[in-house]
């Protein structure tokens, strides 16, 4: 019965409206199985509660209009009624039945989403949240990316879901890309998992949704869903060590002498810091500072000059460098494609 109710609740989705007025993070525009399951459950729930609402609201509205004191009423008191056991029984049993239905439907969806098995071909990504940025490790492919998550499309005929192992390097965070799945927290010492199987290519937005400190607001998320070929191409590119261009040797030297390397990794150089995002393929990203600003040469220069101008409270300090050195470092960073 529950299943029947669920399928009956499958309305035409709101998906058509998703990028217009309702914005890119609408939970009613699901594009991945967990989000779909939640969506169907929520529509069912909204219908049940809508019905309760209409009934109780109407009764209340009727009562307060019908039983108002009228101008020509006398002062006598209305008949006193002290209670009725039948009524009490009725409005106890009915809600109990509704609760049972709601609970069973819910339990089914919880089970389906949380206890899903990993089919062969699953992509594994370990997500490590840091104060105000994201680290994505791809153990199957042997590289680390930052801030922008790339996953392959999961076609219904050949599902290639992505399972995310969620960890935190410092405080609590939460992974939430509404159109792909509900949120799951990233908690130190408490590994979690979640999964997505996006059915459409494109960019999916989200943001950290567990308060994690000053810049919780700018711990944004970008998930790029790519066709299998493009994803493979991206993986291949990410696996390469950093480009080394002799033209920017002064910049790459400054990267070491100005202590950038203490926090950042650039694979293929001695820079192997883990406090900040991996910069090996910095220029393959569209944004800086986990979505804070678009990655343009001017913004990059400004970021290195003073990260706080885009993201006050971010844990990257403004380095002590001259304008000229700044240009050199920026030039170097621009070669990290």
């Amino acid at each position: 019965m529950v299943a029947a109710l669920l399928s009956w609740a499958t309305l035409p989705t709101f998906a058509d409206a998703r990028d217009g007025f309702f914005g890119p993070t609408n939970i009613f525009a699901p594009d991945s199985t967990p989000a779909h399951s939640i969506f169907r459950l929520s529509i069912f729930e909204l219908e049940v509660e809508g019905a309760i609402f209409v009934v109780v609201f109407s009764l209340l509205a009727y009562a307060i209009t019908k039983f108002r004191q009228r101008k020509n009423d006398d002062d006598s008191e209305p008949p006193q009624v002290y209670g009725s056991n039948q009524m009490e029984l009725a409005w106890t049993v009915l809600p109990v039945l509704i609760v049972v239905v709601l609970f069973l439907t819910t339990a089914q969806v919880i089970h389906r989403v949380q206890d899903a098995r990993r089919p062969p071909g699953t992509i594994e990504v370990t997500v490590v949240a840091h104060q105000f940025w994201w680290e994505f490790r791809y153990p199957q492919y042997g590289f680390v990316a930052s801030n922008e998550l790339h996953v392959p499309l999961s076609a219904p005929q050949l599902p290639t879901p992505t399972f995310l192992a969620l960890q935190s390097a410092d405080v609590d965070h939460s992974f939430w890309v509404p159109r792909l799945a509900g949120k799951t927290d990233l908690i130190p010492n408490h590994p979690n998992t979640m999964w997505i199987d996006p059915q459409e290519t494109g960019l999916f937005l989200g943001q950290c949704s567990q308060y994690c400190g000053v810049q919780h607001a700018k711990m944004l998320q970008r998930v790029y869903v790519q066709s299998r070929e493009e994803f493979n191409k991206w993986v291949h590119a990410q696996q390469q060590p950093a480009a080394s261009d002799p033209a920017v040797a002064s910049g790459s030297a400054l990267f070491i002498t100005k202590a950038c390397f203490a926090c950042h990794t650039v694979r293929g150089t001695i820079a192997a810091g883990i406090v900040g995002p991996d910069l090996t393929h910095l220029m393959s990203r569209d944004t800086i500072g986990s979505g804070a600003v678009p990655l343009t040469p001017e913004n990059l220069r400004q970021w290195v000059h003073n990260p706080a101008s885009f993201k006050p409270g971010s844990l990257m300090p403004a380095p002590d460098i001259t304008e000229q050195e700044l240009d050199q470092i920026t030039a170097y960073l621009l070669t990290l494609r």
């Binding site: 939970i27 939640i38 459950l41 929520s42 729930e45 709601l102 819910t106 919880i110 799945a181 949120k183």
Partner: peptide
Amino acid sequence: IMLATAPFDWQLSA
């Protein structure tokens, strides 16, 4: 009650 529906809450929480 919507929030109490755990999967719905995965979207709505926080």
